[in-house]
């Protein structure tokens, strides 16, 4: 076959019958995966409820009433009962969701940017830079994550901002490691060498060839950390290191309702239920996302 005799195709006639794009495929797979879909819908509902807490909440979450303490679920006016200071549980759960979701997402988002950048830089450039970054990160692995969060939070003092800083520091090392691992794998593939062989510089190679191939894995891993962050933040609040009373936050509510567990067990476990449902949805959705983002299926 003489391939050279073929006529040139003018630019405006180049027909590209683009096969369904990558993200369209991912979306289709998620829609077909019922568990992931339910989890995502639940998460969205919880997030929306938290965002519109001031519209949805029937009562002021901070208004106490000594006369109406620890009412059971279904009390008229207090659909989910009241806590040990007579505050409406439903309103507090809605407002508490704000805090909890904030504490779940902020540290992870911060760590994703910091850890992801460090990891990609370490993985891509390798050598001494990799050594410095990775060995520094290893130091943080010497402490259990809960202990580290408590220690940093304790050292910085209580308060939400400090808790976010503490949790960010806890989540940076695992994200650096994940980012470094996937970057090292991708960097050694032939298409990166081919890109370098075609004269492209490192920034271009990172942007075009590296990021699209590593971001998926990093983001999926980070989404799994979201639930860990909520639980750790709740733990910090439980210890009095995170959100301060009288503000509502699920972990803090769980802490204060702890003594009421024998009086109103169903009311007392409600904040715990919220933490549980949110985290399990996060984990399942993150798993589903990972499966949907596989290239070959």
């Amino acid at each position: 076959m003489d391939t050279t005799a073929l006529p040139r195709i003018p630019p405006d006639q180049v027909k590209v019958s683009r096969s369904p794009g990558y993200w369209a495929t991912v979306g289709r797979r998620i829609l077909a995966d019922r568990v992931t879909l339910v989890c995502l819908v639940l998460l969205a509902t919880i997030a929306l409820a938290a965002v519109f807490a001031d519209v949805l909440a029937p009562l002021d979450p901070l208004k106490t009433s000594m006369a109406k303490r620890l009412r059971p679920i279904g009390t008229p006016g207090f659909p989910l009962g009241t806590d040990e200071l007579g505050r409406d549980i439903l309103s507090r759960l809605l407002y508490g969701g704000r805090m909890s979701l904030l504490m779940g997402s902020w540290p992870v988002a911060n760590a994703l940017v910091i850890g992801g950048t460090l990891g990609i830089v370490a993985g891509f450039f390798g050598g001494r830079l990799n050594m410095v970054i990775m060995r520094t990160v290893d130091v943080f692995y010497a402490f259990p994550s809960v202990l580290l969060a408590v220690a940093i939070s304790g050292a910085l003092g209580s308060g939400m901002k400090n808790a976010i800083v503490a949790l960010t520091i806890v989540f940076v090392p695992p994200l650096v490691r994940i980012a470094e691992t996937v970057t090292t794998q991708v960097r050694n593939l032939d298409f990166v060498e081919a890109a370098r062989a075609s004269g492209a510089g490192s920034p271009t190679i990172i942007r075009v060839h590296l990021l699209p191939n590593v971001m998926g894995a990093i983001v999926v891993y980070a989404s799994g950390l979201f639930s860990v962050s909520i639980i750790l933040a709740s733990g910090l609040s439980f210890l009095g290191l995170g959100v301060e009373p009288p503000q509502a936050e699920w972990g803090l509510m769980l802490n204060t309702l702890r003594q009421a567990i024998y009086v109103q067990p169903w009311v007392a476990i409600l904040p715990g239920m919220m933490i549980f449902v949110t985290s399990i949805c996060c984990n399942l959705a993150s798993d589903g996302l990972r499966a949907a983002m596989e290239i070959k299926q």
Binding site: V16, S19, F191, S198, G199, A200, P212, N213, I295
Partner: peptide
């Protein structure tokens, strides 16, 4: 397989080097 970026269409893979230049 390893020498083609799995996230780029063939068109983008082929156009990459000329665009760089």
């Amino acid at each position: 397989y390893a020498s083609l970026n799995p996230r780029l269409t063939i068109a983008d893979s082929l156009a990459f080097a000329p665009v760089v230049h």
